[in-house]
Lab assay of single mutants.
Amino acid sequence: MDSLVVLVLCLSCLLLLSLWRQSSGRGKLPPGPTPLPVIGNILQIGIKDISKSLTNLSKVYGPVFTLYFGLKPIVVLHGYEAVKEALIDLGEEFSGRGIFPLAERANRGFGIVFSNGKKWKEIRRFSLMTLRNFGMGKRSIEDRVQEEARCLVEELRKTKASPCDPTFILGCAPCNVICSIIFHKRFDYKDQQFLNLMEKLNENIKILSSPWIQICNNFSPIIDYFPGTHNKLLKNVAFMKSYILEKVKEHQESMDMNNPQDFIDCFLMKMEKEKHNQPSEFTIESLENTAVDLFGAGTETTSTTLRYALLLLLKHPEVTAKVQEEIERVIGRNRSPCMQDRSHMPYTDAVVHEVQRYIDLLPTSLPHAVTCDIKFRNYLIPKGTTILISLTSVLHDNKEFPNPEMFDPHHFLDEGGNFKKSKYFMPFSAGKRICVGEALAGMELFLFLTSILQNFNLKSLVDPKNLDTTPVVNGFASVPPFYQLCFIPV
């Protein structure tokens, strides 16, 4: 009986604490739906499609509103004006990374994606500088992407125009580009180590996009005490870190300090320079996690976009025909596509942009946080508050993009057929937390897609009208449904 009384008292205290925290903070924060004790607004949000729920709530509470995930307040920004004001106009104040408990377990605050403060700034600055020195957006990395595009075309030829699921092959190409940047090595598509790495990356994007992960991140005790797919994700990350550590040891034994070959060499050189400046942010643990982040951000996002792009091109054969006509006119058949071609191919450029806009790969991006107490639109948001960005509300804005739910390359073309930029184009987020590999991803999408369409016609196994382009999961990332196609050599 005594234990029951204690339990009831504990629960009562928890409920009172929950109510007090919510009521004391709500006077400062933007308005929002009334949260339930302990669980907050979790029942009012469709976990399978958070973005749709945010759109519905914005119609009631406006472009800036507050939700509670458990006891934790989260300020939501919906629509271009609110997102721009926060991420661009007040970029420094909104540059923090929001709480992501599962990532905390995986990387302990290291790396480039989930770190904060001085650690994040130094690692991000170093990573950007190193990638630029190796030619991100310049010639040397373009050579690597072109080489991988040629290998991709050869792998597709091996399908002999038979029906195939493109998931694996389209994942190999961007993964190999990242391998060449980090390890100075590309792998054969049949290499077992490479296959294991690909498998872990593919599993992780599916797990991260599941409703279960949303629950884990908002009720963090689940991570330590409950079984579930989150444990598989943590094991996959541990596998990748151990693999990278092996490569780091190989580099330490063979590195030429006067001739760095890749990202690992550059990081080890930085560690050597910083060894007298303790404590340094440049450690082996930081290198492991930064490399894992580059793999995660640079492989599955690009391969998922490529997979979605081919599905949309199957669905819209008239678009595919126009792209192939432009390829034939500008590039021809006797040389590989290059980035200089893009400025002469406005329709193809528009298609690449429209694919990214339409699929809305990361509907709410990753959570941000404010780095200080900030007054925002007459609300006071306390330091450390998590900020949720609705990228969907920007990419699918119906004023900027008429009929935003329709796939239409003319969203990025003017009346004369010239490519038209849009400030609403934010597939990689915006501001200080914009994806480090934005330029690389854009290069890969253009070169891989043009190389495929230069060499193959795409054949659907069903009537294009019957192809479903609805994402199968739409949590962290929008993942396309399973499909097969035939690559018919031109």
Rank of each mutant, 00 (worst) to 15 (best):
S3F: 14
S3T: 14
L7F: 14
V8L: 10
L9P: 13
L9M: 13
C13S: 14
L14H: 09
L17N: 12
W20G: 12
R21F: 12
Q22G: 14
Q22C: 13
R26K: 13
R26D: 11
L29K: 04
P37D: 01
G40P: 03
N41I: 03
I47S: 15
K48V: 07
I50M: 13
S51V: 08
S53L: 07
L54G: 04
Y61T: 02
P63G: 11
L67A: 07
L67R: 02
G79Q: 05
E81M: 07
V83H: 05
K84P: 03
L87T: 11
E92H: 11
E92V: 11
G96M: 10
F100D: 15
P101Y: 09
L102F: 15
A103Y: 15
E104M: 14
E104T: 10
N107A: 08
R108D: 14
R108L: 08
F110R: 11
G117M: 06
E122Q: 13
R124N: 05
R124I: 03
R124S: 06
R125I: 04
F126M: 13
S127V: 12
S127G: 08
N133P: 07
M136H: 10
K138D: 13
S140L: 09
I141W: 05
E142D: 02
D143G: 08
Q146L: 10
E148P: 00
E148R: 00
E148G: 01
R150P: 01
V153I: 11
V153S: 01
K158N: 10
K160S: 09
A161L: 04
P166K: 01
I169G: 01
L170Y: 00
L170W: 01
K185S: 06
D188M: 03
K190I: 04
D191V: 01
Q192C: 09
N196H: 11
L197E: 00
L197V: 04
L197N: 00
N202M: 11
N204S: 13
I205V: 10
S209A: 11
W212F: 10
I213W: 15
Q214N: 08
I215L: 14
N217F: 07
F219H: 06
S220L: 14
I223Y: 15
I223M: 15
D224S: 15
T229D: 15
T229H: 13
L233I: 12
K235H: 10
V237C: 05
V237A: 09
V237E: 07
M240D: 00
K241M: 02
Y243G: 03
Q252R: 14
M255D: 06
D256L: 06
D256T: 07
D256P: 10
M257D: 14
N259F: 07
F263M: 10
C266P: 03
L287R: 02
E288Y: 11
T290M: 10
T299M: 09
E300Q: 12
L314D: 01
P317Q: 11
T320P: 07
V323S: 07
Q324N: 07
I327R: 00
V330N: 10
I331G: 01
R333L: 09
R335A: 08
P337V: 09
M339R: 04
R342E: 05
S343N: 13
H344F: 11
D349P: 00
A350I: 02
E354R: 00
E354I: 00
Q356K: 04
L361S: 03
L366K: 04
H368V: 03
D373S: 05
N378R: 07
G384R: 04
G384M: 03
T385C: 06
I387P: 00
L388V: 11
I389Q: 04
I389G: 05
S390N: 15
L391V: 09
L391H: 08
T392P: 03
V394C: 13
K399G: 12
K399L: 09
E400G: 10
P402N: 13
F407A: 00
F407C: 00
P409C: 02
H411C: 02
L413R: 02
N418F: 07
K421V: 09
F425L: 07
F425N: 09
M426L: 12
F428V: 05
A430S: 13
G431K: 00
R433F: 00
R433I: 00
I434N: 15
L447D: 02
I452L: 04
Q454E: 03
L458Q: 00
S460T: 08
S460E: 01
L461E: 15
L461S: 10
L461T: 14
V462T: 11
P464R: 05
P464I: 07
K465I: 11
K465M: 10
T470C: 08
P471L: 03
S478K: 13
V479W: 07
Y483S: 01
Q484K: 13
L485P: 00
P489C: 01
P489H: 01
V490F: 08
